[in-house]
Nucleic acid binder design. Sequence first.
DNA 1: CATGAATGAGTGTTCATTCAT
DNA 2: GATGAATGAACACTCATTCAT
Lengths: 223, 223, 223, 223
Amino acid sequence: MPDQVPTFQHSWIGDQSLSGELTDKQWKILKAALTVFTEKGYSASTTSEIARVAGVAEGTIFRHFKTKKEILLATLIPLMQNFIGPGATNSLHDLLLENDNLPMEEVLLLILEDRQKHIAALWPLLRIVLLEANYHPELKDVLLNNVVRKVQKSFLVFLEQRQRKGELRDDLDVWKLMCSIFGGFVTYLVSCTLFPEREQGKNNRQELKVIVELFLRGAQKQT
Amino acid sequence: MPDQVPTFQHSWIGDQSLSGELTDKQWKILKAALTVFTEKGYSASTTSEIARVAGVAEGTIFRHFKTKKEILLATLIPLMQNFIGPGATNSLHDLLLENDNLPMEEVLLLILEDRQKHIAALWPLLRIVLLEANYHPELKDVLLNNVVRKVQKSFLVFLEQRQRKGELRDDLDVWKLMCSIFGGFVTYLVSCTLFPEREQGKNNRQELKVIVELFLRGAQKQT
Amino acid sequence: MPDQVPTFQHSWIGDQSLSGELTDKQWKILKAALTVFTEKGYSASTTSEIARVAGVAEGTIFRHFKTKKEILLATLIPLMQNFIGPGATNSLHDLLLENDNLPMEEVLLLILEDRQKHIAALWPLLRIVLLEANYHPELKDVLLNNVVRKVQKSFLVFLEQRQRKGELRDDLDVWKLMCSIFGGFVTYLVSCTLFPEREQGKNNRQELKVIVELFLRGAQKQT
Amino acid sequence: MPDQVPTFQHSWIGDQSLSGELTDKQWKILKAALTVFTEKGYSASTTSEIARVAGVAEGTIFRHFKTKKEILLATLIPLMQNFIGPGATNSLHDLLLENDNLPMEEVLLLILEDRQKHIAALWPLLRIVLLEANYHPELKDVLLNNVVRKVQKSFLVFLEQRQRKGELRDDLDVWKLMCSIFGGFVTYLVSCTLFPEREQGKNNRQELKVIVELFLRGAQKQT
DNA sequence: CATGAATGAGTGTTCATTCAT
DNA sequence: GATGAATGAACACTCATTCAT
């Protein structure tokens, strides 16, 4: 996955790499750190293993990053800022632009399919971000501001548009609409992972369609 | 929270406390361990801090638990089996029994209010369980079998009843119904925590009502 | 082996058991200590294992012996004084008395056979005594004075008798005679243990006979 | 003693020092370990004392040796393979070659004198090897194969030669001849150490001569 | 007198960090 | 800049010894 990341463009931790350029060494170290953190979590990872995986000497790591914690931040924060965040909204944005005239139901299905692919590809990275954000406020802040809020915003914008178009109820808070569709969708993804037997042999697109339909028409039996 | 736990009645790790009785010392150690794990996570916690918090010598800990990991399991597994799991279903069960004749909408509201209180009370505990389950398969197993499956089941039973009564659509998988209401609800709770400013001055019960209403009637504008 | 030890009659370590009587508890502890020390050596043994093997509480041990080291001394010193030492000389003494008129060659054979049996029976005990004597001067003293010197003395007395009878050269130090026969014999025993394949299918008594014959007639080819 | 050891040329424990070169630090650690083990035995020695004696940090030890036990093996095994073993046979070999035409009696005397010096110089090392071989099969194996068997072999070869020359009885197992002279000699050495008063004022060479003479001519009075 | 839970100094070992080369 | 040996504080865990019951 990191191979698609062009370069870390914006901010950086500490005083190194202010230019936004990453040397080959730094790149190798961060890639290695991500691999190791992803497998064992931050606390259970050792700098010596990161060095080994990166193919550099242990001392070299501390020439680029003052502490182990700085490696964590230098790995995850740029990834959130430049990769997870943008990645989460860009494709969404394009998708919405290109399908502005499609009916709600179909656009939502496209969105969910796109999100599903995206999340699956990013899962190991997302997992470590979500886990470590619990113990490192710096991560939590960036996660909220650069990922969560952005995703919310594009969703909200989309929902508001459709609301204005008259395709969605306007007696309800858009926020709750988002909770509903997003929550239903994520819970479905999680339950597919936890209980894979339940989804065996089913058509994924068909299943997502049901989620969308349920969101739009509601659970109550029509009389 | 642990103060409400009467005694750990069922299983226990290793051969100690098979009777389900916890000595005062064991209780103190586990309570301290829970506190420390909750604050720092398992890996970053030290047995010496647990001992300090428990007010016992470090050696005492190892008289009761062979390894640090056993402390983790001995803390979280019984809590899941005897406290989180039952706590998650018991009150739900009673609630459903007592309100069998209430309309869907009202019962769901009662359920969500009850769940919200429950989750809020348990949050620190739930958080550490969810986090550590990522690194300890033993925890994941118990979490799935003693908590997740149980909660699902009571939900499903309830939804199926109402489906049979004709109050819910029967052209849909109950499982998806559950994903929808459960996901919408949890996402709402999470977003309240992450963005408290959004809920300020709002009536909680009123908000939950909207969630329920949205679930039942759907997001699409009625024509 | 300890079952044959009647009671520890003489000295005792510390102020307990001056009477020479051993309570049942003390007996059990010392027997257990001997077992454990014999298997793992003193340093690698733990008082908790001794207690377990003895079937008493760990605290009970320290009611009878002030320190772990005192257990070692209380176990091995009386055994050397009352069991190994006497055992090494008594049977020898009897054997010599009863066979005063037998020729040198035959008596020596009887002696070696008797010693071989004795050493084989005592080996685990002798081994721990010889090993720990290297690290505990108190043990070394008792070993020298109560075992080594005694064995030497009976040997020397015997050899001197035979020397006076004209059966042994009197131009040589009896001491050296003893070194020769004793050393040859012990080396033979050790090599039997280290290289058991070498003795397979051989008649033990015949082998000992060769040792004796070699000692008496020498290695040089007679012309 | 270690100062005479040039470098450890052959095998080594683990994957360090395969080249047979020892860094200064490794050398210091092993020398310190040998000192401490020699004084207190393996079990009673602590890695912290070894570090102190070696003049390095405790952590440094574990950069070179994975466990305490590996220190023991890395110390004693190469010493047996490259120092004790060869040292035990080399000088013997030369001695026999150079004195092939000397009479048995004189060669044996030279051998014993040489062995005596050798053993005296090596005694602390030999002692710890013999003691710890009782608890560590790996040590026992190397001791048997690289020391004991080698010494035996050179002895046996020598004795067989002399047997063929007609200087030793050929009606006897060479093995027993070896037990006899070797055992008598070692027992003499041991008794000199245990009872130094006995040898005071005596001429060592003269004493060894008696041992040899006794071995060759036997203890029986010639008529 | 016997117990065994409690102790805490000490153990072997790890690891983030430093620094001479 | 890169190295990797060295560090030493901290870690999980052990165990001889104590002492309230």
